[in-house]
């Protein structure tokens, strides 16, 4: 099982799609590791600089409908090989969300007001978050400020994360 939590990358936009997360031209790679340099290469976001902003981040905080578009599991893989195992958003596209849990990664949904609060309190500061999956608690901190936020992950999704993914679970059970 992955260790969740760490430094936060804030992406202040809704509808960030899979082609922005990992462009299709890299889908000819047949190892996950090869995707590493290309994460968020085509992201449209003012002020975002791919190399500078991704470095040493383990958590993404963003707005609504993250991961919309393609079914490519390369999108969570591109995050995974960069050490980002957690995405916190107002909402996710269906396939992306399932892909995250299927890979043993964590897609956490929070209400829009909470996401607003996180952006206004922490975006722009070097922020880190501790993730307690069993207790459903996030602890954000930056510049001496802290904020605790609770969240829920459905039992099935939690099970997938603990099992490290869906393949072995399904092969044993069905």
């Amino acid at each position: 099982m992955h260790t969740f939590g760490g430094n936060v990358l804030f992406l202040d936009r809704s509808d960030i799609n899979t082609d922005e997360i990992i462009p299709a031209k890299y889908l000819t790679e047949i190892t996950k590791a090869a995707l590493k340099p290309y994460l968020l290469e085509d992201l449209i976001l003012e002020g975002f600089e791919q190399k500078r902003d991704i470095a040493d981040k383990q958590v993404v905080v963003t707005r609504a409908n993250f991961g919309c578009g393609s079914s490519r599991e390369h999108a969570p893989w591109a995050l995974e090989v960069n050490g980002v195992y957690v995405v916190i958003a107002e909402s996710f596209a269906r396939i992306f969300r399932q892909n995250m849990f299927n890979c043993g990664m964590c897609a956490i949904e929070l209400p829009a007001e909470t996401i607003d609060m996180l952006f206004s309190q922490f975006s722009g500061s070097a922020t880190s978050v501790k993730v307690d999956l069993d207790r459903g608690e996030l602890n954000f901190s930056a510049d001496g400020k802290t904020e605790a936020v609770s969240f829920q992950v459905a039992p099935f999704d939690h099970e997938l994360v603990k099992a490290g993914g869906w393949v072995d679970y399904a092969d044993t059970k069905y």
């Binding site: 599991e73 396939i95 399932q98 393949v167």
Partner: peptide, 15 residues
Amino acid sequence: GVGTTDLEVGILKGV
């Protein structure tokens, strides 16, 4: 549409 892991389980188990 599904990701590669769901596809994998579909191929393996038909679910």
